[in-house]
Design a protein around this nucleic acid. Sequence first.
RNA 1: GCCGGGGUGGCGGAAUGGGCAGACGCAAGGGACUUAAAAUCCCUUGACCCGUCAGGGUCGUGCCGGUUCGACUCCGGCCUCCGGCACCA
Length: 826
Amino acid sequence: MSSEYPAREIERRWQQFWEEKGVFKTSPDPKNKYYVLVMFLYPSGDMHMGHARNYTIGDCICRLRKLQGYDVLHPFGWDAFGLPAENAAIEHNIPPWVWTFDSINLCRRNLKLLGIAYDWDREVTTCLPEYYRWNQWLFIRFYERGLAYRQEAYVNWCPRCQTVLANEQVIDGRCYRSSCAAPIEKKKLTQWFFRITSYAQELLDGLEELTGWPESVRTMQRNWIGRSEGVEVDFELDDGTRIPVFTTRPDTLYGVTFLALAPDAPLAETIAQGTPQQEAVREFCQRVLRQPEIERTAAHREKEGIFTGRYAINPLTREPVPVWIADFVLASYGTGMVMAVPAHDQRDFEFARKYRLPLKVVIQPRDRKLEPEMMTAAFTEPGIMVNSGPFDGLWSEEGIARVIAHLEAQGLGRRKVQYRLKDWLISRQRYWGTPIPMIHCPRCGIVPVPDDQLPVLLPPGVRDYKPKGKSVLAGVDEFINTTCPKCGGPAQRDPDTMDTFVDSSWYHLRYTDPHNDRLPFRREHADQWLPIDEYIGGIEHACGHLIFFRFFTRVLADMGMVSVREPCRVLRTQGMVSLAGKTMSSSKKHGVWVGPFVEEHGADCARLAVLFAAPPEKPMEWTDELVVGVKRFLARIWRLYEECLNTGVVSPDSIPVELDPDRFSAAERELYIHLNRTHQKVLQDAEGFQFNTAISALMEFLNRLYAFADRGSPVFGFALKRFVLLLAPFAPHLAEELWHRLEPGTDSLFTRRLPKYDERFLLFDTMEIPVQVNGKLRAKVTVSRFSSEAEVKAAVLNDPTVKGYIQDRQIRRIIYVPNRLINIVL
RNA sequence: GCCGGGGUGGCGGAAUGGGCAGACGCAAGGGACUUAAAAUCCCUUGACCCGUCAGGGUCGUGCCGGUUCGACUCCGGCCUCCGGCACCA
């Protein structure tokens, strides 16, 4: 009687309908805005079910909010610059943009196949000049504000990609690109940085208000920023050279027995000059710095060092202590020089034992006495200060403040807050990125490209994209040679391009005004939509993109370009999708692919499968069984509506707009209550990102519809129609098809408002009260919803089963939890 | 080592301002329809035990203890898995 569910035919028809009618175009004048953003895509080949999961989640929210009457902004774009395109270009000898746009076109087709409701008029592509010119414009604004600067430093160098990397792009000492993962080396280079550290405290404080973010991400950012409070203490070399060291333990200052410098600290180069140690120190530093970072900083590795031949004076004791170079000291943290207290710091302890340096106890535990020779590990807990001159006898935690006060009063040191976060290194020695809009003039120095000469275009006529240790653009004469905007003399362009994370740091703002050719975006437009109401993406961006875009938003707020200081109200991280135990990956060609899957099973099937399998934040394993259940669900819906409509039992005319509860039969009343409860639960769950339980509620209700005998009932028809609206965010194509069968010739159901559920009909007339005797479930008694406590107790005590358990024993207590449970304590 | 998040049937997962553990789905077993198969529909399905049936009992949410009339949920102590940071002075 009923036909097979023709998924593809239906989906094609309604996708075309939505596009023609412009159903998901963004309102130019939002009254009730809702900005749902899914992290844009790095186009690198085909799209798998991991992508489908991500974009379906966003789409489900978009459609739900639209049905609830919000003006939704749901845009999409392409994070289109980056190394893979360039590597593919080198490998296949095609320009990077060919590979990039092939991928983009493939992915756009896939997204349309899935029926994701983006407003394609707002599509953003970062590798187009109309986008990256604003990277350049913003870079110059940062430069003017002192937030972009150029500096020589030891930086992370990926020998395989032949470029520098940001700290955020070094994972376990290796290149962050999973297809590279080469061990990172340190190289001394002059590079461009963004001064994100001057926003460190703000970025930390801002986390407090981000209560809509997962706790894990907030914690990760807190640790990444890594704030510690302490003091910078000035030691002095015999010739008067100042050696400031940062410490969080000034209470141990009297226990310092040597100083240690990082091999790459600036002072390490000069300190041994003129001492007999000079040659040995130079060799040591060179040897240490040649090692890949991953080896040098491996945990539990034996520490190494060398004496410099010099001594420094402890500002409190006036005693001289030897100055060493030690490989465990980090140049990039604090001053790159530390005071060593072997008795109370484990690293210093190990180093001192190895090189037979003295150990001085200045903190004693309460319950025992430390003897320097007997110690097998540093004592790092608080205790009583000893051997510390005027501070003897103080509890060390109190001593910290006292010593700091003393140091400050004597001008020997100052309170300091130190962060682990480092400035963001943004220049890259690669081709496929935004050219840095700066000119190096032999007379005028560094000169920004004037705004009216932007964009600085990437030169297309490059023959060889292979990296050679310096930027590809440095070898393109017609690009690199230019004139100085200031003096008009010959000058050279900066040969580097920007980190692609610059592109993604403000794209959320560009979407609000995507075609602007005078500004990155207008404030009025940004303010209309920001903050992002729901941001969906992978947790791998927790300490990269998700910090960078917060930083950018704050800088832009300080520039008066936008009002919000935090870009995003609610963040949702989604779990990876794996196949046969391994994460799906386009570049590794491992996955279930969207195109073939949708052709075979349909888009609604793919959407329901990823939504129903698990809560969105959990990782999920893709299996064929996953598809069976949701496919059956779709077919069951289809069959029910076919049966009802084809037989004429239900017709568009027979469905009432309103119901009259006074005329309900008992069964109709029950169905209507189930409908309202389902409606409430689907909304609650979907708003809370629990799509799996929302869908299970829909499944349960479908089972009830099947079990309902009187299909001619107006309540049944009413329920059929409401069910379609509730289904719509999850399986929009099927819902739209059924909607038009119930209401032919009308507009898209997504232009409708979802009615409110009927609050009067959320509870059943009777309820089943579980009865416990001594905490064990023994019976269930059905009572009226309107029964008083006394009536419920009476009914329970009268129940024969319950009586059997009580017999003639004394009842000590009866605990009644209204509408939930009753417990009889004997 | 530090920080964060988990551990529930054969599987994916439900249920936490303490109150019926296992919703929904998959898989499995039995049955109906069919010449047969597919599809569909119905029943059973946490473990163990007692009972011929009807039915009844004990145990059960990583482990051990505690609080409570009552604990997957709260408290203390462990085990274990995943993720992040990791010589940060």
